[in-house]
Design a protein around this nucleic acid. Structure first.
Length: 548
RNA sequence: GCCGCUAUCGUCUAACGGUUAGGACACAGGAUUCUCAAUCCUGCAAUCUGGGUUCAAUUCCCAGUAGCGGUACCA
């Protein structure tokens, strides 16, 4: 047991270089001048050089809630684990986030409540740690890694909870002199919380997503400051979020069990508590079990996957919104033309279990999203994607802007909207039939089985004789019917169905011949529109080549 | 092991204690059509198990089971 005076002496002994007090620091972070309902949120990732889809999911919640309440969304870099840190990780992260349209009001290079990188805040944490030692609510611990794992082993054998608590907390009540002696030996120390909780005591707590929950009080003397001088998450979180004026902490459920620890630290720091919301992470089904989307096993866990393939970031956001608040899809149906930012996200509507990440549904949402766009907008998006992924495509699109827009506009304006673009990479399929150098080779096996190659050439020959680009759709089709009837391909489907043997085929076969002669493909958009977009010259050229 | 959270069609989910348990995606069939897509119609398909409470339970309570998370000088 140490006296109050001894604790004051101990604090100075432990942190001789820290001269500021915690009050000094707090005074540098004035209250934010915001409306009461405005939320100040923070997205606080570690710069590991990898951006997980879950990061996009979570940061979207932060950004959205801040926007909805005229609040602020802050980026804070949590680089306190030197083992996992990657060079350039922070810039990489910021760039990736911005590719997904996530911007921050305060970030590494901007804002008055920084620094926003934890490794630049070490003195702040030390100041608070010193203050806590002085007040006897924290203490130095000299236990080595080996000693700790031995204790853990013993605890496991005994069948009791593992951890540094109660009688297992060797350095908790050591005398000032003994600590001083250890210090003089040059031993490294961590600073631990002097917990006063009782594990047997339960308390209730309200989470903004999970609702009312029951916890045991924390009784672990968890590490606040590691022996390398860096804070643990448990310590940095209350300090940073308090100083930065955060009023709602959103973080995934892996933090949920640590709530009692954090609440106790808030108390010992004399800080006002901050509301929490713990959304569940995105899951994946494997062998009948759910698991978190894994960096190693799932390519789609890395946002690079979506960026490279060109999934529309707004579509991804809409899919996430769907998972967060399932009423989003109803809202979308009622408001097809509003941006998703108009949707009111509600924390209380979040699902409490983990949702499975469903690529099929994601693609359906992306498809619908793109279907709502104008051809020019689709062009712009594909172009932006190509600038990062395909120089040849950029060139092609620049040189053929109007042509490309016309292509993308096929079956887009009007009641019938094609939904065959899911991602920008699908542009290749859209463009390929319209550019000679992207075209496939002719494969006569694709012709309908009942049409001889000779007949096919006859069909095309006859078509060329009467082809007029100025024909309206109806006239155009009448000509095809006429050619068919002349050669024994009926346009009377009923008659054909009743007596197929009386005919060589039906008009559909004739149209198919034209389709293949023109595009080399059996599946294309509306043929009439396709020909209108291609233009007279290209159509005639391709058809003539087929006849030869 | 201990602590906590969760449990409705294959998936995401909706349902003041009273509903033929609703929708979306997927799937199957049909209509339409020059192919494909789109569109429209139809179909398939769910309250984890067992106890309570109640006139009445998907809903409230308890237990079990399962899944998830935590149990670090990682975040």
């Amino acid at each position: 047991m140490r006296t109050e005076e001894e604790n004051v002496k101990l604090a100075d002994l432990l942190f001789p270089s820290i001269e500021e007090t915690s009050e000094d620091i707090i005074s540098k972070y004035p209250n934010r001048n915001l409306e009461q309902e405005s939320l100040v949120l923070r997205f606080a990732p570690s710069p590991t050089g990898f951006v997980h889809v879950g990061n996009i999911y979570t940061s979207l919640i932060d950004r959205k809630l801040a926007d909805q309440t005229n609040g602020l969304c802050i980026l804070r870099i949590e680089d306190t684990d030197k083992e996992r840190e990657v060079e350039g990780g922070t810039d990489f992260l910021i760039n990736r986030l911005s590719e997904f349209g996530i911007q921050f009001d305060e970030s590494v290079h901007r804002g008055d409540y920084g620094p926003y990188i934890q490794s630049e805040r070490l003195d702040i944490y030390k100041t608070f740690a010193k203050d806590m030692v002085r007040r006897g609510v924290a203490y130095p611990c000299f236990a080595t890694e080996e000693e700790l794992s031995e204790v853990r082993k013993k605890q496991e054998e005994l069948g009791v909870r593992t951890g540094y608590y109660g009688s297992f907390a060797k350095w908790r009540d050591v005398s000032f002199d003994d600590i001083k002696k250890e210090l003089e030996k040059g031993s490294k120390f961590a600073i631990r919380l002097y917990s006063t909780g009782t594990f047997e005591k339960k308390f209730e707590f309200d989470d903004e997503i999970k609702g009312r929950c029951t916890f045991s009080e924390n009784d672990m003397d968890i590490v606040l400051l590691k022996s390398d001088g860096y804070p643990t998450y448990h310590f940095a979180h209350p300090i940073d979020d308090t100083l930065m004026g955060i009023n709602l902490v959103i973080r995934t459920t892996e933090w949920f069990p640590s709530v009692p620890i954090h609440l106790e630290i808030f108390e010992k720091l004399n800080f006002k508590k901050i509301a929490y919301a713990h959304p569940s992470p995105l899951m994946k089904m494997e062998g009948g079990n759910k698991r978190k989307l894994s960096k190693r096993k799932d390519p789609e866990a890395d946002v690079k996957f979506f960026l490279e393939k060109g999934y529309p970031v707004a579509g991804i956001a809409e899919y996430f919104l769907n998972i967060m608040n399932s009423n989003f899809s109803d809202w979308r149906r009622e408001n097809p033309n509003l941006p998703y930012s108009d949707f009111q996200l509600k924390l209380e509507k979040f699902n409490r279990a983990g949702a499975l990440f469903d690529m099929v549904k994601l693609e359906a949402v992306c498809r619908d999203y793109i279907a709502r766009l104008l051809a020019t907008e689709v062009y712009d998006e594909i172009f932006k994607w190509a600038q990062k992924n395909d120089d040849k495509l950029v060139k092609r699109m620049e040189e053929n802007r109007e042509y490309c827009i016309k292509i993308l506009n096929i079956e887009r304006e009007g009641a019938q909207i094609r939904k065959d673009i899911v991602k920008w990479r699908d542009a290749y399929d859209q463009f390929s039939i319209f550019f000679d150098d992207m075209s496939e080779e002719l494969d006569t096996d694709k012709l309908p089985a009942n049409v001889e190659v000779g007949d096919a050439k006859k069909i095309i020959g006859k078509f060329l004789e009467t082809y007029d680009i100025n024909d309206k759709s109806e006239e155009w089709f009448n000509k095809i019917k006429g050619i068919g009837n002349e050669l024994g391909y009926t346009s009377d489907y009923k008659a054909y169905k009743d007596n197929p043997e009386k005919f060589k085929g039906k008009v559909g076969d004739v149209a198919m011949v034209l389709r293949i002669a023109l595009t080399k493909k059996a599946k294309t958009p509306d043929l009439y529109q396709t020909m209108q977009v291609m233009g007279k010259e290209r159509v005639e050229e391709r058809l003539k080549a087929f006849v030869i």
